[in-house]
C-alpha cells in the first residue's frame, strides 16, 4: 500500500514578523522554522496506518526552499520511508491552486492508496490544498478529521464541527484526509530513528518540472493590522505588575470586592 503525506514548514508563530522588501510576504531571515502543526498529525496518522497494514510504503512530500529538508528529515525519523522535496524558493508566491496542482502532478499515476495532509497551514491558513489535490485526482476527501479508522479498504473518519460535535463519515480508499489538531499524539523521533532517517531517500525535484498551471489569485500586499484594541500594555517588574493589576481589577471589575 502506497501512502503519501504532504507537509509544510512554517515559522514559529511567536516570532516577531517583518515584511519582505516587496511587502508581499514576511521576511524569512531570523525566523525559527518548524513543521506546520496540523501536518504533524498528518504524519503521525500516515505512520500509524503504515504500521497497521502490511507492505506499506510512505512518502513524505514538501514544497519549499532547501530549509524544508530539515523538517522532512524529522518526518522520515517519525517513520516515513522516503521523501520528495519539491524545490521552490518562490513557494510563497504560489496560490493554493498551484500548490495543489504540483502535488497532484507528483501523485498522479503513482497509485497512492491514502493521502494525508494537514487541514490548513498556520501561516496562510487557506484550508484548500488537501481538498483541491483530492478533487484533481478524482478521490474522495474527508476534511478536518479528529478520528480515523481503516479496515478492509473502508475509512471511517470523524469530522470535527463547531461546538465540539463530530460527524461520522465513511468512504472507500483510495482517499484523502485533512487532519485537525488533536487527531492523535504525534511521536517524537527517537535517536536511532533519527540516525536511520539520514540514510533514507530524499529526492529533490525542481518545481519547474511539475508546475503546469497559472495562479488564480495573487497576494498583492502584506501588512500589519491596525491596532484596534486600545488595551493597556504593562511591562516591568513582576511585583509591580501584580500591584498594578490588583488596582485595575478593583477599579474596573467587581471580582475582588
Amino acid at each position: 500500500m502506497k501512502i503519501l503525506v504532504c507537509i509544510k514548514q512554517v515559522p514559529d508563530m511567536e516570532s516577531r514578523f517583518k515584511l519582505n522588501s516587496e511587502s508581499k510576504w514576511y521576511e524569512e531571515a531570523d525566523l525559527a522554522w518548524r513543521m506546520n502543526e496540523y501536518d504533524e498529525y498528518a504524519v503521525e496518522q500516515a505512520v500509524q496506518l503504515k504500521d497497521q497494514v502490511d507492505d506499506a510504503d510512505l512518502t513524505v512530500l514538501s514544497i519549499g526552499p532547501d530549509r524544508v529538508r530539515e523538517m522532512m528529515k524529522k518526518a522520515l525519523a517519525m517513520g516515513c520511508d522516503r521523501g520528495a522535496h519539491i524545490a521552490d524558493d518562490d513557494y510563497f508566491k504560489k496560490d493554493p491552486y498551484e500548490i495543489a496542482s504540483v502535488i497532484a502532478e507528483v501523485a498522479k499515476d503513482k497509485g497512492f492508496y491514502m493521502i494525508c495532509t494537514g487541514m490548513q497551514s498556520q501561516d496562510r491558513g487557506s484550508a484548500q490544498v488537501g481538498v483541491l489535490v483530492a478533487e484533481m485526482l478524482g478521490l474522495p476527501s474527508i476534511t478536518t478529521i479528529v478520528g480515523f479508522a481503516f479496515e478492509g479498504g473502508q475509512i471511517t473518519a470523524k469530522r470535527e464541527l463547531e461546538g465540539g460535535i463530530k460527524s461520522i463519515i465513511k468512504t472507500r480508499a483510495p482517499a484523502l484526509v485533512t487532519c485537525q489538531l488533536g487527531l492523535n499524539t504525534p511521536r517524537y523521533p527517537t535517536l536511532p530513528n533519527i540516525m536511520k532517517a539520514k540514510r533514507k531517500e530524499l529526492l529533490s525535484i525542481p518545481i519547474s518540472e511539475l508546475l503546469k498551471v497559472e495562479s488564480k489569485q495573487e497576494t498583492v500586499r502584506m501588512y500589519f493590522p491596525e491596532k484596534k484594541g486600545g488595551g493597556l500594555v504593562l511591562e516591568g517588574d513582576v511585583a509591580d505588575l501584580t500591584d498594578q493589576l490588583i488596582k485595575i481589577l478593583k477599579d474596573k471589575t467587581a471580582v475582588l470586592a
Binding site: 498556520q122 501561516d123 488564480k216 489569485q217 495573487e218 498583492v220 501588512y223 493590522p225
Partner: peptide, 20 residues
C-alpha cells in the same frame, strides 16, 4: 473589491486579488 485575509495567526494581513 479586493478580499483581505489574515495570516500567521492574525499577526499579518494580506490583500488577495482574484485573477478571474
Amino acid at each position: 473589491g479586493v478580499p483581505v485575509v489574515p495570516a500567521c495567526n492574525s499577526k499579518l494581513r494580506c490583500d488577495v486579488k482574484a485573477k478571474t
